[in-house]
Amino acid sequence: MTDPLRSRFEAAVHEHQQAVFNLARRMTGSDHAAEEIAQEAFLRLWRAMGRGVEPGPATRAYLYRTAMNLGRDRGRRARCELAGGCAAAPHPPEEPEAKMLRRELEWKVREAVLALPTAYRRVVVLRHYHGLTYEEIGAILRWPVSLVRNRLFRARRRLRQLLHGVWKEAGES
């Protein structure tokens, strides 16, 4: 007979592992660190479930918050170990030159996101890569919505400065 607690944990792993891993990866810039963070976040979830304090519908928020906190102390300048970094994701076949340009753009965007202060990077990752609303971001980071809005505004301003050159190139091409 299957343990219901175990079943619920396995369901949570299948449902959230992708998001937690990618969130940690974008926060740290390292695949290795992201794996460690995902491991620790799910271990904490399992322990919480065992104590009877199962987050339930708030599991996603619990995992995101844990991963964010764990990622805070990691070296943010670590590079992706996977060959090609972001390009490890599947893409349609391209011409070599186009592929090279796209990889360069990916690298610049990733560097710009990693160059943001942690508080700004958090809101950018949650908003742009996880598509969360201001209220959901506020619930995860335990910030008021006004602070989320303000930090996102400042983060975008910083990103526009960091990506200014890329922007111009993209506009010209």
Binding site: Q17, A38, R102, L105, E106, Y129
Partner: peptide, 21 residues
């Protein structure tokens, strides 16, 4: 522009180690 870095798939070894927790 930010969307040029899409999600990457989870390494299979990570899924296995998560389930083993």
């Amino acid at each position: 522009m930010l969307e040029v870095c899409p999600d990457v798939p989870v390494p299979p070894r990570l899924t296995a180690s998560l389930l083993a927790l």
